[in-house]
């Protein structure tokens, strides 16, 4: 069986200065170790501390080559970086698993996912979501679940994710119910999730008569309004949002009403 010569192509990522994507191809065997080492030295000299090793075109990896990757990873981690793999096919992944490497290396399905992880964990860049939706209540449940799932995926705990789901649900329901009668204007939901907090902004064209009562509810003296009346079926949403969040504000302009919430991560 003939071996395929190993090739390495190094790619820089605009906007992510610390990252290098290393596209490997061919067979990564013991004879490749020296070149792998030289390649990572060159990457290190350019100040790159986070290496995404793209394995899409790799047909074979030996234990010697894997050992070299471990050594390179150790050096990158010492510089607060990492070496991660992407694009492994099932056969390669199974092999790495048998070699115990999946417990050491982080493996991503593709380069984009690996890059997103870098931006989140190393650069601590927030995840931004923006959705415009028509004013129908039935659209709110999938939206609230989407935001909650993303928060959970980003490492927020079960309790925080549930609270985030509740906040999104209550604000969006308010926006639908308190929208200008007869208006088909879209409601804008913007969410910024970062590792420490989540910010939610819901903007709609509100009924002017309802805006006054909405802002009045935010006054401290009205904090407990109606929340304990068992005969009242509605009107507790804003109270709930206030209790679950760290900051709540309402802004009314000629472009609509914007309800903003900040929720600090607790878990």
């Amino acid at each position: 069986m003939t071996t395929q010569r190993m090739e390495i192509d190094i790619q820089e990522v605009p906007g992510a200065e610390g990252v290098a994507i290393l596209h490997f191809s061919g067979d990564l065997i013991s004879e490749s170790v020296r070149r792998i080492n030289e390649c990572f030295s060159a990457v290190g000299k350019k100040g790159k501390t986070y290496a995404i090793v793209d394995m899409t075109e790799v047909s074979l990896i030996s234990s010697a080559a894997l050992g070299e990757f471990m050594g390179c990873r150790k050096r990158l981690i010492e510089q607060h970086g990492d070496l991660v793999f992407s694009g492994l096919d099932l056969e390669m992944r199974t092999k790495l698993n048998l070699m115990g490497a999946t417990k050491i290396f982080r493996i991503y399905t593709d380069i984009r996912t690996a890059l997103n992880s870098y931006k989140w964990e190393i650069e601590r860049q927030p995840e931004k979501i923006h959705v415009s939706f028509p004013p129908y209540l039935k659209i709110v449940p999938p939206l609230r679940q989407l935001v909650s799932r993303i928060a959970r995926q980003k490492g927020y705990g079960n309790r925080d994710s549930f609270r985030i789901e509740t906040i999104v649900d209550e604000i969006c329901n308010n926006a639908v119910e308190h929208g200008k009668p007869g208006a088909d204007d879209l409601i804008d939901l913007s969410v910024i999730i970062d590792p420490d907090k989540i910010e939610i902004d819901v903007r709609n064209m509100s009924d002017p008569d309802k805006v006054a009562s909405l802002t009045a509810l935010l006054l401290p003296e009205n904090a407990e309004v109606d929340k304990l009346k068992p005969d009242v079926k509605r009107g507790r949403g804003l109270t709930l949002i206030k209790m679950l969040s760290d900051k709540l504000s309402v802004e009314c302009t000629d472009r609509g009403t914007s309800v903003r919430v900040k929720k600090v991560r607790e878990e």
Binding site: E170, N173, P230, V232, R234, R236, T239
Partner: peptide, 13 residues
């Protein structure tokens, strides 16, 4: 799994 303020309102009812 989930209840919001409106759901809670009908439980009180």
């Amino acid at each position: 799994r989930y209840v919001n303020s409106t759901g809670l309102g009908i439980l009180l009812h």
